[in-house]
Structure formats: structure tokens, C-alpha cells
Write a protein that binds this DNA or RNA. Structure first.
Lengths: 212, 212
DNA sequence: TAGATTGTTAATCGATTAACAATC
DNA sequence: TAGATTGTTAATCGATTAACAATC
């Protein structure tokens, strides 16, 4: 329950998961105390930046001492919202969709897959606990179940229509694996765009070769 | 063969793939001419930003007219380096590794998978053309084949060791799917970090709920 | 020509870095 | 206490936006 003063900049939000990782590592290796300087070195940031980032959300440190690893970790955990449980549905039972449904790591962190939807739900290899339903059952499912996050793993051409449907049903968070930029007011979207990433790698690779 | 004056900012590079997508769409729908204003609207940028971005690489437009879609597309294609062919190897024949090896879309864009490596190369379901080799064959393979890009799809714990090996072999570009930040001088890395993305979605989802 | 739109210079905005008083 | 390190204010840096002369 943080007090949200101003809108936090995207740059800061993007660093939150990295702080969380880092604190988890420190915690796992039994380190109980950390300074902004130590964190900054591990994450390739500056100590100032670390302190500025944290100060967006509150005061988590102790002057002259630093930060208590467990406490800071728990704070960042709650800022991101990893102390909650989320219900997810996956739309598209192709390779990516079924892989995600079978992947247990997110499940353990509170992201629970409740159902998978597809145009052809027959014979999809998904864990027994997770039903694979026909896409026509989506509305009914959404009306009678809490759904926090929708994962879109359909091909590009269908993604836009699926997204419109999802918006129309009043759903609020979309994790999009189709190579299209989806966006809408009142709906938060995160895109996983592999080709964007691969293109950037190609650019950087060429750039490296020019400048050497 | 662009003249690289100064280092181009990361923010600009990240937009290049999006320009390329957009121009491909325009081109596919038969549009031959586009203005910075039209591009900016499609991409949720400002017209100034679009022109500033392009001016990093040259002068592609015509005053009073705009940009020729085909010409601009071909220029951006060559800036990113999509007019070249890249040899890739995949290290890690798990779900992600084999899916990528079987995925044809990147292949068509010039990213050719030459081999997959694993600790247990037996019985991995990968297209016939692509050999699945034991990881001990990596050095030999790299010495006798051109390898531009290494895709790392091993679990987190092994990723760091694999990365060190890859660096030691003098390879220059790494596409990393393990949830660890890999970085090294003289090696370009792009990370695909799904949990980072999911965490950010969780944050934004909660933020949306607070502020409404 | 008149209208449109580029490429670029200048102004603004925001994010990162530096500095330092507060204080454990 | 002396040393260390925070949280925050001020300075700097870089990226985005605005403005406009050049010109098709």
C-alpha cells in the first residue's frame, strides 16, 4: 500500500525487476546488508540513481548503515505487486501458448494459469489441471471467473481482433507475444517482441564491426 | 554503408525496428508516400522525433513531399542490417531452443540456424537440416564455420558459464533467453527477459487499479 | 506560384549525476 | 565520537519538442 504521489517514470519501473533479482540473489547468498553503492555496482547503475529510484516509493534505508536486504526486498516485492496472486488466461494454444501453460516458474511466483483458449482446442498438450477451451467460451469464462491477465499468443493476423475482444470484455492487462504493438486506454500492455530484439542485435552487431 | 558519425542513442536504435514494421505495412498496402507526420501518428511519436531519428543516418526525404515508402524502407532495412544473412547457433536444446530452431520466420529474414548444441543432444526434435551436437563440439564447429550470433537458451545456472565460453571463443553477438543479465566488452548482447516483462505488467496492472 | 514538408537549429523537458546536510 | 551512508536538493546531461528557413 504505497502512497503514489506522482506517476513514476517508465525508466524507474523498468529497473524494479532488476532490483528485485539482485536482492533475491543477495538474500539467497546470506547477505543481510547492502548499500546503494554496492547495488549500483552489481546493476551497472550509479549509487545516486539507486537512491533516487527508491525515494520515489519511500524511505527504505538507514543513514550511515545502508539497506536491510530482507526488508528492502520485501518492499520492492510489494511495490511490484509480487506479493499477490494473479489469475491468467492464455489465448492461443500454439507452441508458445502451450509452453507458457506448462511452464511452472511463473506459477510459483503467483501467476496462475486458469485456462487456455483456442479456435481448435482438441488435443493440445497442456497440464491436466488447465482446461483448453474453445474461444467461443471466453466471454462466459470471464463473466464467471476472476481474470487479471490475458496472455495473447495467437498469430499476428488474429492478435488485433483478439485484443479488441479482450478490451470489450473489460479486461485490464495484456501480455502480448504477437509481433504487433497493441495499445488501448485503460488497458495495460506488455509486449514480448522477439524480432524487435533480434533486429536490435543485428544492428549492434554491425555497429560493432564498423567501429573496430 | 552508412557513415557512422557519432554513437547513436539507444532510444533511437530501439525505434528502428518499429519504423521498419510500419514501412512494411505501408508498403504491403500499396502506399507509396509517407510524411513524418503520418509515421508519427502510426507509431505514437512526434513528427519532430521521426525526422530527428532519420537525420542520424542521412537525408531520406524530399522537402514538400515526404518520404518514398520503398526507398525509406530499403534504407532502414540496410541501417538495421536486414539486407544481410546471419549464421546462428543455438546453445540449449530445451523447449525454447528447439522451438526457435523450428521457427521459420527468422530464417526467412536471413537469420539462419546452423546447429544446436546441448549436453544431451540425443532425441531432440529439431528440423532435419539442423544438426544437434554435443556441447563439446562447439569449439570445433566455431573454428570451421562462420558464426555470427549465438542464442543462449540454457537454464539460468548454466547461462553464465556458457556465456564465458562464448566470449572466450571470440564470438561477438549473443541473444540471451536465460533470466540473467549477461554483458561483456566487445560482445553485443540482447536479453529476452520474460519475467521482467511480466513483473512490469504486474506493476502497471496494480498502478492502474490504484489510480481509478 | 502557393502549399507542404523536410532537415536542422534552438528551446524545453526529463532523467541522471553530483553534492551535501542529516543522522545512524 | 568518527566514519559511513542515506535522502534530497541542485547541477548536468541528453532526449524530445518546437520553430523555421530551405526547397520541392
Amino acid at each position: 500500500m504505497e502512497k503514489k504521489k506522482e506517476k513514476i517514470s517508465h525508466a524507474v519501473i523498468r529497473r524494479l525487476p532488476r532490483y528485485y533479482y539482485c536482492l533475491t540473489e543477495l538474500s539467497d547468498s546470506g547477505i543481510t546488508k547492502v548499500s546503494s553503492n554496492m547495488l549500483s555496482k552489481r546493476l551497472n547503475l550509479t549509487a545516486s540513481q539507486v537512491r533516487q529510484d527508491f525515494s520515489n516509493f519511500g524511505e527504505f534505508g538507514l543513514q550511515g548503515y545502508g539497506y536491510d536486504v530482507e526488508y528492502l526486498k520485501s518492499q520492492i516485492c510489494s511495490i511490484i505487486g509480487l506479493d499477490k496472486v494473479y489469475s491468467m488466461i492464455i489465448i492461443g494454444a500454439g507452441k508458445i501458448g502451450t509452453s507458457l501453460a506448462n511452464y511452472q516458474a511463473f506459477e510459483k511466483q503467483g501467476f496462475k494459469v486458469k485456462a487456455v483458449f483456442d479456435k481448435e482446442p482438441e488435443n493440445k498438450s497442456v497440464r491436466d489441471e488447465i482446461p483448453v477451451l474453445h474461444i467461443s467460451k471466453l466471454q462466459e469464462f470471464v463473466n464467471s471467473n476472476k481474470v487479471d491477465i490475458v496472455v495473447i499468443t495467437v498469430p499476428k493476423v488474429q492478435a488485433i481482433k483478439v485484443f479488441e475482444l479482450v478490451c470489450a470484455l473489460g479486461l485490464k492487462a495484456v501480455w502480448n507475444f504477437a509481433p504487433v504493438y497493441l495499445s488501448s486506454e485503460n488497458v495495460v500492455v506488455e509486449n514480448i517482441d522477439m524480432s524487435e530484439s533480434l533486429y536490435m542485435l543485428a544492428y549492434k552487431f554491425n555497429d560493432l564491426n564498423y567501429n573496430s
